[in-house]
Design a protein around this nucleic acid. Structure first.
Lengths: 196, 196
DNA sequence: TAAATTGCCTAACAACCGTTAGTTAGCAAT
DNA sequence: ATTGCTAACTAACGGTTGTTAGGCAATTTA
């Protein structure tokens, strides 16, 4: 062990990144192990030196992505902020994470029903927890009177996250909207309201 | 031809409905022709007495759904109404159509990339046209000053429809929200804004 | 230096896929 | 009575799928 830190299983990382791009583009089922191997320039069977199964690849992508979103959300949720600012920051962070991991996010939101029952259940719980923190902040805001009293926080959370998550369909890094543009527009639509 | 009107190819309709439920639940690729046949209590090969291919079934579902959405939108778009009311009505109609065809809608929004190139292009154009009418109404509203001047109509349309279309993931007819509840909440979030 | 591990390879298997060929029973119209 | 159509059937085809067995060269570890 010398000057350079060993890039822990960097090949594994390469496979995960290729798989993210492929699963995101074609969908989990339609992306075959042969497709993935070809994208990496190796034989299909070689993938099994790094992963036990195709589903394990999906699981690794999913769990990393779930962790990134949870870790990103946690400090904001735990901070001492008004519900209004907190929600705003949580939305901003969610958008940032979407953009940073646009391929993984597409999988994160569309492909997890391919996981085995047990993993599926674990995963669903993580998503419920993640969304529940939005629900909680909205409830706080309602009590504090900064959000309208007539809303159903769960409904709002679903609709709000659906808007943001749909980004994976149209966002392109080379497109005309910067992160900040997107964040501002989401605030405008989802918090301030479209009407002037 | 007697008292009863011949139920024009009613078997075909049965297959389409079973296919809608199946494709919606498992996704197009993961739902096999054998699955579909089993759901109908017939042999896989028998499906080919009614449809030339699996893709033809998807196409028929997709095109019917596209037609329903376009036909539903047209009279509202063409009516003499203020942009604000028009947008409100278009949202309401979209929600109604989602609920009336919740399975088909799921396919409508998720599965059309499985169509052949030519059909895919036709279909994409219909969706672009459908969305464009939202864009146009929002532009009118901006000019009239009833919507905020700083928005990008295309962005708003995407985010707005994403919110509504996500319904296919959580809506249950036996659930606690009526159509009217859903419509009101969408207005609140998307038009009036969450903040009080 | 010897041993073990890693990362790839070739070859193949069983399962499943959409689809076709060919047939048949039942029914309606000529 | 014959014809033709509809909607189903049985059987099977060629292709693709995820995966495994077994081997081999290079690298790392003891």
């Amino acid at each position: 062990m010398l000057a350079t830190i060993k890039p822990l299983t960097s090949r594994k990382q390469e496979i995960l990144e290729a798989a993210q791009a492929l699963f995101s583009r074609k969908g989990y089922t339609d992306a075959s192990m042969r497709d993935l191997a070809e994208a990496l320039g190796i034989e299909p069977a070689s993938l099994y030196s790094h992963f036990k199964s195709k589903e394990d690849i999906l699981w690794e992508i999913a769990i990393r992505c779930a962790k990134a979103f949870n870790d990103g959300q946690e400090p904001i949720f735990s901070a001492s902020l008004t519900p209004e600012i907190k929600l705003r920051n949580m939305i901003d962070r969610h958008i940032e994470l979407m953009i940073d991991n646009i391929n993984a996010s597409a999988i994160f939101f569309r492909e997890w029903h391919h996981l085995s029952k047990e993993r599926h259940d674990d995963y669903a719980q993580m998503i419920i927890d993640y969304e529940q923190r939005f629900v909680q902040v909205i409830e706080e805001g309602m009590k504090a009177g900064v959000f309208k009293a007539s809303v159903r926080p769960k409904f709002i959370t679903s609709a709000l996250l659906a808007s943001i998550n749909w980004m994976h369909k149209w966002y392109r890094p080379e497109g005309s909207m910067t992160i900040s543009d997107i964040q501002q527009h989401m605030h405008l639509l989802l918090l301030d309201g479209l009407q002037s």
